[in-house]
Design a protein around this nucleic acid. Structure first.
Length: 1274
RNA sequence: GGGCCAGUAGCUCAGGUGGUUAGAGCGCACGCCUGAUAAGCGUGAGGUCGGCAGUUCAAGUCUGCCCUGGCCCA
């Protein structure tokens, strides 16, 4: 080792390791790493075994990317998803697997159309048709990748490695043709059918919404609740009291439903209605109705629901009476299960066109009456038909009031009120209420094979596990047929062509080529359009409206076939991705690609995908890839369940710091840029004078406390920069430095400024700026908004963002996200690791330590690779601390691997945190002196270390051991953490491995093999001992704190009584004992054997409840009391000698053995002692003069070192010291001369007045006045 | 309205199959260390484990009801 810290020299000019900067700026470091990855094509190199350093490929680990939609901005939830999706492929890659990662984009569906509608300021199907479907579709395809750049930036910035260049796109021709193929298979298997179904219908948009879409749009509203009299045909003055909450559907009434087993009553209605004397309703609901009406309804007759079934009544509107002719059941009472007594009258109005239950009841009637008509007075656009007279052409829900009034006029209204409930609105046009409406639609008969899907689900590994039987299992158990079709424009066209001659002739071609075989001219119109406009996107050949013109002769009867008009649910697109991403089975080579990547080993998305992607994947795979089909397709092997995914990690949602859902409109979210780039947010500018209760003050800005905390600002005020976005500092125009304060009652994302400051910043607040909604801020004019930035600290960066999602909580629980929280977890791992890493580079450079010395061609960093390095020794030859650290490393490696193999991210992250903590808080702390021990010269600590078993002659070897140990652990942590925090891992690796070995070692940490635990290094006994040592040290420090005994003051002795005597031998070993002595600064350590304890210690006996509970039952409490009363020391001895003690419990004698009684040792009160499970530590606090002097000596050294630091002296800079004071000070200084010279790098120590040059400090230490003068230089 | 998940220290979160002193980190207070230095370390205070009943010798853990938040569904 060439470096000699005793020689005053500048840091080596050609230091091996790059210095780790003192200023922490993770984002800057990350962008350098990103550039390195890009330039060297590291991601691409990880994809193939030939370019990795992980040995021969262990096969393919299949990952499916759930396609996000790129027509909205990415948010924190996407960061979570991508962070989790990234970590496992990286891990598996380092384990030697090939992990292709094909990106994908979900591009179809209503959201895209709605965006375009907004852009065109049109609304609904009719508008689109008026605008023209062709240009509309062209706009859709153009809008799909609107935010692609933002997505690609985020993806790359957070280190999500995915192949964006080869991404699958759901609107591509090859993708659509794959989907067609799957639908063709379903058609062939008879699983596609057309039916009529009541759907949630967005009338203004002319479309049905999927249940997922409906679920997003519930609002609390007040709706009418009316009670209408339906007079009986036989007894007109007796009427059914019928309840409904949708008066507009009364015109389409077909039945009144009762529950046959319920009790009903006929009541005297008095003069309530002109033509009705008696009303019929459920017995239980009579009193509630009396209250509503404020009048008595005496019971005239009791009857059963059963008695009412079949009774004919007069409907409130009779526009369908002609069609009802000949169908006795129409306008009669039927029995139905869905009738409840929760509200209403127990008699329910049934309009089968407008309710799922109603329609089901109707279908039940239709079973015996196949020609039964369906009454529907409403057009698909949500307005009444002409037959409705004055209501014709009007939006139905707008007619509720008038209809109710009409009923009243006609003497049929029993009661009307409003009630508050949740009602669905269109999720993208939230002013439009949805209505239930019967529509023709295409279905997949999922219910026919639901048992297979359930079986498939049973074999999937779900994380968390409860999804399998819980949310997902429940969903499958309650499966209904998949409503596949959408009456929209922008989606995969449903590939069913129907014969114009015979509707039973249907054909489902699966590709353009197949259609062209039937009709070579089928696509002539498209090719012509393409010639006319070469910019026409080729993929539109398979889209509306072009596809609608495609016809071909019916294979059965040769008549013309035309396509059905619908497109399909976009969920089917995404669920088809396992094969459609390859264009399977049409595209050349797709069969091999699919065969290789089916099923997926791993997928992950948020929990809202249970009914979305998780379902569509599972269902399509179950229906399409049955064994017969797999065989027919000629796959290389038969896939049994599960497919198409084996493991699914279900993620929770990202919420704000209060646990509320992050919402753009509320502004309660932390924009990803605040974590990734700069700590800043944009605000709407306002005048302080407009803020209630605020005093305008120049240079002071006010924001909501939530925003203040959101920027991680603390205290009463903070200093920040303000600037306009268009005049950012790097564009010219310096930002204004201001004080910022939280202000009560301020809305979010508004900053209040004094007039002078507004002028300085060039801001002109808009009118009434305090009412600007957070999501509108970016849309304000440039002079109306302003950035607030905390430039004093860099953003935490991408690693910190990722790490937060791994380490804060298991990924399936909701995570409270904020800048503060991200920083908190960063400090725990990344910052701590960086400090250790920095420590290493500082001393390795000073000492000229190189792991490559004598071993310039090493290809790895495992012990076998480093064996040839100069001075390298195996772990078992090193000192106790090194062996312990390497054992901890191997234990952690073993655990992290096991956790990752089980997809337990959080637990894996916890292991890494504990490992870094052990490294920093114990290994480095206890080893520090070894790194600055000069060879041939023993420092105080070095001498102690020598006493700990390392001879003087091997001090240099000990130092090398320390370097190698720290080096090996740091490099291993870099590799272990690489899948989690890929940037920092790379930074460590490049510096620690590639600097010493610029060519022989793998180019990137991500090309390395994931570390294997070195089983030989694991020493569980040592781990237990060290745990005890650390616990005992902690107890000793507790005693010092409690008795105000500073650690710098040496004490004569510490006595230790161990709880577990078995540890005594190990802890008495000098290496262990020294650690405790040194940490506690005591001269002597005694381990007291049983019988040697003094009064400082007492024993406490307790029953071992786990063992005794079953044996003693209730008497276990008596045993507890008996043991507490007994002479603990005596019982303990008896237990040790005789192996049992006898207890009398309530007259019954019990023999209890050592396993059944717990003996704990406690510190008695009144002594300098502390105890816990590990044992008791007693400090002897009496001080001798010698001890006091030594304390003063260490005090002197401390002051000198403090002065060195204060003067910012370099680590190796030499000084001259002069110390003056009382005789005692002089005496102690003399005694400590050598120590001072070595530890403080002093070339001379003068005692007495003396030198006048240099830094002079007059101090009072320990009641002693003294003077220290420190002069720089030798 | 129904289902699922969650509620543990000021904050963020751990707490196999019930076992009697409920843990960690951050923050806070006090202190230590000073050759990792705009760092590091220790100790402490702080908890009716959401509430109420129940089962049990024993409940944060099991059961029932309720409250709050989230998600899914109506």
């Amino acid at each position: 080792m060439s470096g000699d810290p005793s020689t005053p020299s500048a840091p080596r000019a050609n230091a091996l390791f790059d210095k780790v900067g003192t200023e922490i700026n993770f984002p800057a470091e990350e962008s350098r790493i990103l550039a390195f990855w890009r330039q060297q094509g590291i991601f691409e190199k990880t994809l193939r075994a030939e370019t990795r350093a992980t040995g021969p490929s262990r096969g393919t680990f299949v990952f499916y990317e759930g396609p996000p939609t790129a027509n909205g901005m990415p948010h924190n939830g996407h960061v979570l998803t991508r962070a989790v999706k990234d970590v496992f492929p990286r891990y598996k890659t380092m384990c030697g697997y090939d992990v292709p990662r094909k990106a994908g984009w979900d591009t179809h569906g209503l959201p895209v159309e709605v965006e375009v509608e907004k852009e065109l300021r049109i609304h609904g199907k009719a508008d689109i048709e008026a605008y023209g479907v062709k240009p509309f579709i062209s706009r859709c395809i153009a809008s799909v990748f609107r935010y692609t750049e933002a997505w690609e930036n985020l993806t790359s910035k957070i280190g999500f490695w995915v192949d964006l260049d080869q991404a699958y796109v759901t609107y591509h021709k090859s993708y659509v043709e794959s989907v067609w193929w799957a639908l063709g298979e379903l058609h062939r298997k008879g699983l596609l059918y057309q039916g009529e179904k009541v759907v949630w219908w967005w009338a203004q948009g002319g479309t049905a919404l999927s249940s997922a879409e409906v679920g997003q749009g519930y609002k609390t509203v007040d709706d009418p609740s009316v009670y209408v009299a339906f007079p009986l045909v036989d007894v007109p003055e007796t009427a059914l009291a019928v309840w409904t909450t949708t008066p507009w559907t009364l015109s389409s009434n077909m039945y009144a439903a009762v529950r046959p087993e319920f009790a009903y009553v006929e009541v005297d209605a008095g003069d309530l209605l002109p033509g009705v004397r008696r009303l019929i309703l459920a017995a239980e609901l009579r009193e509630p109705l009396e209250k509503k009406l404020g009048r008595p309804l005496p019971v005239a007759r009791e009857l059963k629901g059963f008695d009412l079934v079949g009774k004919k009544y007069r409907p409130p509107f009779d526009l369908f009476s002609a069609r009802a002719e000949g169908f006795g059941v129409i306008h009669s009472v039927i029995g139905a299960d869905f009738v409840t007594l929760d509200a209403g009258t127990g008699i329910v109005h049934v309009a089968p066109a407008f309710g799922e239950d109603d329609h089901a009841a109707h279908r039940a009637q239709a079973r015996s009456n196949p020609s039964l008509p369906l009454f529907n007075a409403v057009k698909p656009d949500g307005t009444f038909i002409d037959a409705m007279g004055k209501y014709a052409g009007r939006w139905v829900k707008a007619c509720d009031k008038e209809l109710t009034a009409e009923l009243k006029e006609r003497g049929l209204l029993v009661h009307a009120e409003t009630y508050r409930h949740e009602y669905p609105f269109c999720w993208r046009a939230d002013e439009d209420p949805l209505i239930q409406y019967a529509r023709p639609a295409w279905y997949i008969r999922t219910t026919a094979l639901i048992d297979r899907a359930i079986e498939n689900n049973q074999t999937i590994q779900w994380l968390p596990e409860h999804i399998k039987t819980g949310r997902f299992g429940d969903f499958l158990a309650n499966n209904v047929d998949w409503a596949l079709s959408r009456e929209r424009f922008w989606g995969t066209p449903l590939n069913i062509w129907i014969c114009t001659k015979d509707r039973e002739h249907r054909h489902a071609p699966t590709s353009v080529a197949e259609i062209e075989k039937l009709n070579p001219q089928a696509f002539a119109h498209f090719h012509e359009a393409k010639r006319a406009d070469p910019s026409l996107n080729d993929n539109l050949i398979v889209h509306k409206p072009w596809i609608d013109e495609v016809t071909f002769p019916c294979p059965t009867c040769s008549a013309e076939m035309r396509r059905v008009p619908e497109v399909i649910d976009a969920w089917f697109d995404s669920g088809a991705m396992p094969f459609a991403q390859w264009g399977f089975p049409h595209a050349p080579g797709s069969k091999e690609l699919f065969d290789r990547a089916f099923p997926a080993d791993f997928i992950s998305e948020a929990i809202d995908q249970t009914r979305g992607w998780f379902y569509s994947l599972l269902m399509i795979s179950t229906l399409v890839f049955d064994e017969e089909t797999q065989t027919r397709l000629g796959l290389s092997r038969l896939r049994s369940y599960p497919h198409p995914y084996q493991t699914c990690v279900v993620l929770g949602h990202v919420s704000d710091r209060e646990g509320k859902k992050e919402s753009k409109s509320k502004g309660n979210y932390t924009p990803p840029e605040v974590i990734l780039d700069r700590v800043r947010m944009e605000f709407a500018a306002a005048r302080t004078s407009d803020v209630k209760g605020a005093q305008p003050k120049d240079g002071v800005a006010l924001i909501a406390r939530e925003d203040y905390e959101g920027l991680d600002l603390t205290g009463e005020a903070a200093r920040v920069h303000l600037y306009r976005a268009d005049r950012a500092s790097d564009v010219g125009g310096a930002p204004v430095v201001m004080e910022i304060r939280p202000q009560k009652g301020m809305p979010r994302r508004i900053v209040a400024l004094a007039d002078a400051d507004l002028a300085r910043l060039g801001l002109t607040p808009k009118d009434n700026p305090l009412s600007v909604m957070p999501n509108d801020v970016p849309r304000l004019a440039p002079e109306q908004r302003v950035f607030v930035e905390d430039s004093s600290t860099p953003a935490p960066g991408a690693d910190a963002f990722r790490w937060f999602f791994y380490a804060a909580s298991p990924p399936w629980t909701n995570t409270r996200h904020s800048l503060t929280n991200v920083r908190g977890y960063q400090k725990e791992f990344a910052v701590k690791l960086r400090n250790v890493y920095s420590f290493f580079t500082i001393y390795a450079n000073i000492d000229g330590f190189s792991p490559a010395e004598g071993n310039p061609d090493a290809k790895g960093t495992a012990p076998a690779d480093l064996a040839k390095s100069a001075g390298y020794r195996l772990a078992r030859e090193r000192s106790l601390l090194d062996r312990w650290m390497l054992s901890e490393l191997s234990l952690a490696t073993r655990e992290v691997r096991a956790h990752l193999d089980a997809y337990h991210l959080y637990e894996a992250a916890t292991c890494l945190v504990d490992l870094v903590d052990a490294l920093s808080n114990w290994y480095v702390r206890r080893s520090r002196s070894r790194f600055w021990a000069a060879e041939g010269v023993e420092s105080a600590a070095g001498a102690a270390s020598a006493a700990g078993g390392v001879s003087r002659a091997s001090a240099e070897q000990d130092k090398r051991d320390a370097y190698f140990t720290l080096y090996e652990v740091l490099v291993a942590i870099a590799k272990l953490s690489a899948p989690f925090t890929p940037f920092q891992a790379e930074a460590l690796y490049q510096n620690l491995v590639r600097r010493p070995w610029p060519t022989s070692q793998p180019e990137s940490v991500h090309l390395c093999a994931y570390p294997e635990a070195d089983e030989a290094a694991i020493d569980e006994g040592l781990a237990r001992e060290m745990r005890a040592v650390r616990d005992l040290v902690s107890l000793g420090l507790q005693v010092r704190t409690a008795h105000k005994l500073k650690v710098r003051q040496p004490l004569a002795r510490a006595d230790i009584v161990l709880g577990d005597q078995a540890l005594t031998g190990a802890l008495q070993r000098e290496e262990n004992a020294w650690l405790i002595r040194d940490e506690l600064n005591v001269k002597e350590l005694r381990f007291l054997a049983p019988g040697e304890e003094g009064a400082e210690v007492r024993y406490v006996l307790k029953p071992n409840f786990r063992a005794l509970g079953p044996k003693l039952g209730k008497k276990v409490q008596l045993a507890k009391q008996a043991l507490a009363r007994a002479d603990a020391a005596a019982l303990r001895t008896k237990l040790a000698v005789e192996g049992k003690v006898s207890l009398d419990l309530d007259g019954e004698a019990f023999d209890l053995g050592p396993e059944e009684i717990e003996v704990a040792v406690e510190a008695s009160e009144g002594f300098a002692a502390a105890g816990s499970r590990v044992g008791v530590v007693v400090l002897h606090t009496a001080l001798t003069d010698a001890l006091r002097d030594e304390g003063l000596g260490r005090e002197l050294l401390s002051r000198v070192q403090g002065l060195r630091k204060e003067l910012d002296l370099g680590f190796t800079e030499r000084v001259r010291l002069t110390i003056d004071g009382s005789d005692r000070v002089k005496r102690v200084t003399e005694a400590f001369r050598d120590t001072l010279m070595q530890e403080a790098l002093a070339t001379s120590v003068e005692v007495g007045p003396g030198a006048s040059d240099g830094e002079r400090r007059e101090l009072n230490v320990d009641g002693e006045a003294l003077v220290i003068v420190l002069a720089r230089g030798a």
